[in-house]
């Protein structure tokens, strides 16, 4: 896509995400030709949609579509349990999570080792997850004694694209939080001036922007220099950044941000749960550190 097409495409996605969520957003994405765009220009489709979805606090089956495309299947994809990124199944049993899209799809892709099984969704026990972010519509997935034809699949590639998608969604959500906090700081008057005039508030918002920019830079680099490692680094940085952003923005929003009359709480909920999908920042960071200590080697550094 050229610059102009990209802007139009993005505006369409932004509009869809702010007006719809769940099944309705899936339909809107079909109408916009997002799946075709995914095949034609993966980076543009993934980065634009997930960022807008994060910004709008919307949900869809897009993560399933992206993962399925990497696995070469047409099915919803069972995710690992919270905080993990290894395949959710050993080939017989599965314990994992699904998006709201899993309930709407007849087929579920279950990855075990180097293979993917396509099972009837009805063969899985799906339990809606309420938890911190009921609006995300996750389901807990369980099944034993799975029997299905398998075909080879590379989970690593699926995880890599999933990391990028989730990192973009975290960045979008972070940008939304920053906007809420920035607007509030300019409107809220105390001691006779907007609180944005106070350095303590300004520095929190500056920290917020720096955290977001760091995540965006890591994402930009991960698309330019594609590797599972660079995708995982981007996800770890985006998850950590989103937590930093949420902490500072909540403090700036103060009382109003603690109420359910203000949208902030939805973003806080969403970022914490998104951080947990396909490995949270703590687990990814610890794994990275263990690998560094074991191998005594740095991952390949980004080339100029």
């Amino acid at each position: 896509m050229d610059r102009e097409e990209l802007e139009l495409f993005r505006a369409g996605l932004a509009e869809a995400c702010s007006s719809h969520t769940g099944k309705a957003l899936d339909d809107a994405l079909d109408e916009l030709g997002w799946r075709d765009a995914l095949e034609a220009d993966r980076q543009a489709a993934v980065s634009a949609l997930f960022e807008e979805q994060g910004r709008a606090n919307a949900t869809s089956s897009a993560l399933d579509v992206v993962l399925a495309s990497a696995l070469g299947v047409d099915a919803a994809v069972v995710l690992p349990r919270l905080g993990r990124w290894d395949p959710p199944s050993d080939g017989v049993a599965v314990r994992g999570l699904g998006t709201g899209g899993l309930q709407r799809h007849n087929g579920a892709a279950v990855v075990a080792g180097d293979a993917v099984l396509i099972v009837d969704t009805t063969d899985l026990t799906l339990r809606p997850v309420g938890g911190l972010d009921p609006a995300l519509g996750l389901v807990a997935v369980e099944a034993d004694g799975l029997r299905a034809a398998t075909r080879p699949a590379t989970w690593t590639a699926a995880v890599a694209i999933g990391h990028l998608a989730l990192a973009h969604e975290l960045v979008g959500s972070s940008r939304a939080m920053l906007q809420l906090a920035r607007d509030h700081s300019l409107e809220r008057v105390q001691f006779g001036r907007p609180i944005a005039a106070f350095q303590a508030v300004r520095h929190r918002l500056a920290e917020t922007l720096v955290a977001i920019e760091a995540a965006e830079a890591a994402l930009g680099a991960a698309w330019e220099v594609e590797s599972p490692m660079n995708a995982a680094l981007a996800k770890a940085i985006a998850g950590g950044s989103a937590r930093t952003v949420a902490r500072h923005c909540q403090q700036v929003l103060a009382g109003i941000g603690f109420t359910t009359e203000h949208p902030f709480h939805r973003y806080l909920r969403r970022t914490l749960v998104l951080d947990g999908l396909l490995g949270d920042t703590r687990a990814l960071t610890k794994q990275l550190g263990q690998d560094l200590l074991r191998t005594r080697e740095l991952p390949p550094l980004l080339p100029l």
Partner: peptide, 17 residues
């Protein structure tokens, strides 16, 4: 390990930026 990983993440983000 968490601290070592965190240092590399910071260096990576810096390099990307």
């Amino acid at each position: 390990a968490a601290e070592v990983g965190d240092v590399f993440l910071r260096l990576h983000a810096l390099r990307a930026r």
